[in-house]
Design a protein around this nucleic acid. Structure first.
Lengths: 342, 342
DNA sequence: TAAAACATTCAAAGCGCTTTGATTTTGGCG
DNA sequence: CGCCAAAATCAAAGCGCTTTGAATGTTTTA
């Protein structure tokens, strides 16, 4: 069943039927009713390819999927993607997923945009002074950024969580518990969230005359291996930190391993707070010592991103809305008073 | 730049240019050369929407993304999706991802197929006697199945791993190590892979006059919590198993936790082999005791599925090719000789 | 050298929708 | 009533590609 058949059946022109279906105001309500009913009964579904051609819209969202040097996908992205997929299916939107390594991202973005295959773009894994922003702004196609880019002043639409606030609060909690020596196992130094989280920690410490020792700070790719190595290093120091913040539960998984192997107890000898992206696999409550976390669901962010992208495609261009989500601080067993022995 | 402009520029008809571009034989080689060169120089890219409309092909692959009751996405699927995304981007294929709970899957499949939005389908998470197969076969659109469906005789195209063989081999290894009492922490009983893995275990045991005790067998959703609970149960029994097989590293993560909490040592008191889908997060070598595993990359399967789907869409329909991948057995520290104390 | 066969190229007709620019209907008002 | 604005509908022109069926050259064959 296509539009011509449907309109012939109803004794109307294609124009009217099309307009009735798409909610245009200039069609009589009775007519619209009749059209909608017929469409329902015949199970008419507009041909998306034809719609795309006629409107010049691709009806799809482009995503650059970051892949690492080791050619591994990132769980964080997978979880995010699940959210995007869910929402875009709801709107009959296609997804174009283009994997790209760190060096090809700009090229991938360009390719996606100029392919005409895509009428909105999304980027994540933001870095400081991210070059992709500049391109995105000149491309003239709707986009949204997950995260921000430290050092970029221009106004762009984003969804981000309050990384700085989250880690400031987390640090404050640890300070209140009496901790004085801190460690930070962070994501790679050029990543925007890493910069902001670090800033949060440093700020909170500063307020209490404390500092983050240079050898108690690591900025590295967030895998459990790296978390373990980092924590092992921390623990070997004379003045080892009693409180450690981790930028992901994956890092925390490794860190916990290191703590256990050193024969120390989490929540007693060492307190730890990690950021939890709510990955289905790494639930902080299931760690051998339940993890105190700052929590914000990546999946939810994915859904929201898709919503806004769809709105941007269908509706008129709106202001570069910027959303900053709050992060919950959830206290579990991995945080405790600072050990008194030192 | 569109086809008309390009052809005008070349002084050729659209027909010829189109054919030159698409590799039709009836165009002069010199002409083709000229066309290709011009296309390259001008950066001409055919409008996919127009192509889709003209050919009647949607240029996209539909995936039903299984979501659980808890509305959580499955990591296994995420990893698989990464593979599919990678390959389909390579072919300018779109993805339509429709999330559906266990009860809506058939409906989702129908919806995808009849939407005309999709010219190939893919399903996974196969169950015994899976009703989706019947539908798929009547839909008349190319499809491929990841996994098989126990009890279904008909011939359908699939990619699967040799679940039975993998678990048979794993069990044999444990038998050789002297183990007599076995446990199995499996995926949900209706899932095809779970049935086959169980069969593999039972077969290997049977060859040596051993059996799988009813209370040493659990078939359950594969989360670390469930793994932990299952192992806790096993360990409380008078005659607790000394060798346990797990259907995923997530289960194994929980099982290991239970072993640790019981004050037992993995690889000594209890041996464990898990199936490893090569998830970036749960690397068996990073478990506190490196895990002996049966390994097969889900990501690789995703890539292969997309390849075949693309081929099926573009090329002529071919035989329902069936691929059965071998699974590696990788021995690490979690397996050791059976304890002699009993 | 004309006819037949082949190799190339072309004009034009869709594909199924949206949208522009009429055209027709309706209804209010003097 | 007749006129005009507003409301409702329509015919037709694209969107950019593929594909059919015909037309034009070029060889080959008889």
């Amino acid at each position: 069943m296509n539009l011509r058949e449907l309109s012939k059946m109803l004794g109307l022109s294609q124009t009217t039927v099309s307009r009735a279906l798409n909610g245009f105001p200039e069609v009589n309500e009775d007519t619209r009713e009749r059209v909608l009913k017929a469409a329902r009964k015949t199970g008419y579904r507009p041909n998306r390819a034809a719609q795309r051609l006629a409107t010049g819209k691709a009806g799809s969202i482009g995503l650059v999927m970051p892949i690492t040097d080791t050619n591994h996908s990132d769980v964080h992205f997978g979880e995010f993607l699940a959210g995007v997929g869910e929402e875009s299916a709801r709107h009959d939107m296609h997804l174009v997923i283009m994997p790209a390594g760190p060096d090809d991202e700009v090229a991938a973005l360009n390719k996606l945009a100029t392919s005409g295959n895509v009428d909105a773009l999304f980027i994540a894994h933001m870095r400081a002074q991210d070059p992709r922003l500049t391109i995105l702004q000149t491309l003239g196609i709707p986009y949204i950024v997950h995260g921000r880019s430290y050092g970029v002043e221009s106004n762009f639409p984003f969804i981000d969580i309050d990384n700085e606030g989250a880690f400031r609060d987390a640090t404050k909690l640890l300070i209140q518990l009496g901790h004085k020596r801190f460690g930070l196992i962070n994501g790679q130094a050029h990543l925007d969230f890493a910069i902001r989280r670090r800033a949060g920690v440093v700020a909170a410490l500063g307020e209490h005359g404390l500092t983050l020792a240079a050898d108690c700070e690591v900025q590295i790719q967030m895998t459990d291996e790296n978390g373990q190595k980092a924590m092992e290093n921390f623990l070997q120091q004379d003045q080892r930190p009693t409180a450690v913040l981790c930028s992901s539960t994956a890092l925390a998984l490794g860190a916990l391993r290191a703590v256990n192997r050193a024969g120390l107890k989490l929540g007693e000898d060492v307190s730890l707070i990690a950021h939890d992206d709510v990955l289905p696999l790494l639930k902080p409550e299931n760690f051998s010592v339940p993890l105190t976390t700052t929590r914000s669901s990546l999946r939810a962010a994915g859904i929201r991103v898709a919503q806004r992208l769809v709105a941007a495609i269908e509706g008129p261009p709106s202001d570069p809305a910027q959303e900053l989500w709050n992060v919950e601080l959830i206290v579990r067993g991995s945080t405790g008073p600072a050990p008194s022995d030192t």
